[in-house]
Each structure stands twice: as C-alpha cells, then as structure tokens.
Design a protein around this nucleic acid. Structure first.
Length: 171
DNA sequence: CCCTAGCGGTGCT
DNA sequence: AGCACCGCTAGGG
C-alpha cells in the first residue's frame, strides 16, 4: 500500500488533521476527532504545498468565504453514487444550499434522499467538499458527522439561516 | 411537538 | 440472497 502523510492543519477554530497520498488530499478530520497522529518523517515538498493550500482554504471556508485554490483531491475512493453526490456538492458556493431530496433528484436518483445523507456522511473531505450545505426539508438543519454544532457554525458564517429543533436560529 | 411508514444505497453475512 | 444500518421525508395526531 502506498504511503500517506498525516499532517496537522492549524486554523483559528482548532487543529484539523489531513491525510495526503501521492495524488492529493485523501481525508480531513475535525479537531478533537480520534484518528492517526501526524507522521514523524518530513513530508515531500508537494505534500507541504498541499498542506499550506489546505490550511488556507480551510481558514477561508471557516470564515464563510470561498476556499480559493484547493489541493488536488484524491479521487480514489467511494462508490459511483457517492462520487456523484460529492461532485454535486463541489458545485455549491458559500451560502448556497440544497436539501437531501434536491440533491437526490440532481444526481438522477429521486427518492434517494436518505442515501444522499449517507453519502454526505461518507464524504472524506468535509468543509472543502461542503456537505454542510445540505439541509433537511423545511429548512431544518439535518445531521452532520462532525457534529451539528460545526454544521450550524459553518452555515452561519455563510449567512444561512436554518431551523434548529423547531426554533429559528441565525448565528 | 411526537410517532409511523416508506424510502434507496451500502456493507456485512 | 437477506438484512440492518442511516446526516431523510411526508403524513397524521
């Protein structure tokens, strides 16, 4: 199996963890998430560049702005359905949202809203592949693997208003 | 608000 | 093949 490099991504909101392959960014995890620790060996120059790009992009999205230049995303994983969902997610700009049902129809599987939710949860690169912009029907927040607190915070920075447990919340 | 039935993709057996 | 997951949804109390 090819080596991957696990690197810390420092942001104003905490230290994320990124894993890079030779092809690009494979996975990103939220601060406090149990996972592999950063590697001991110095990463290649390409990985260091991707790490900087990731840090910059992440800080931008956390601030509600477009990410700018992204590192290459390693396409090597996911089912066809999941990749179609992730591809559709990448078309969403900050502040632009869809519902799980909308997204299902857009990838040609009307009625597969629940499966879309599952695919969002399987997204290996949250925030940069903006699964937080997918809401439940009726303007409700819906779920989020990284915790709904993150989802609400990310959306709030983008000026999106959501319904949280029935009451309207900004943030 | 709650509960229920129905749904589709995925992964495990 | 069967089955139990799930970031869902629509409908009814």
């Amino acid at each position: 199996m090819h080596p991957t490099f696990t690197r810390p991504i420092r942001t104003p909101e905490g230290v994320f963890t990124a894993r890079f392959s030779a092809r690009g960014l494979v996975a990103l995890t939220f601060p406090g998430t149990p996972g592999p620790r950063a590697g001991r060996v110095a990463p290649p120059a390409a990985v260091r560049r991707w790490q900087r790009q990731t840090a910059r992009a992440l800080a931008a999205v956390l601030a509600g702005r477009p990410p700018g230049t992204l590192p290459p995303l390693d396409p090597a994983r996911g089912t066809t359905f999941q990749r179609r969902v992730w591809e559709e997610l990448r078309r969403l700009r900050p502040g632009q949202t869809r519902t799980y049902g909308d997204l299902a129809a857009r990838v040609g599987r009307p009625g597969a809203a629940r499966a879309v939710g599952q695919a969002c949860g399987a997204n290996p690169v949250p925030v940069l592949i903006p699964c937080h912009r997918v809401l439940a029907a009726g303007g409700r927040l819906g779920g989020f693997s990284g915790g709904t607190g993150w989802k609400a915070r990310l959306l709030a920075r983008e000026g999106v208003r959501t319904r949280w447990r029935g009451g309207l919340r900004g943030r």
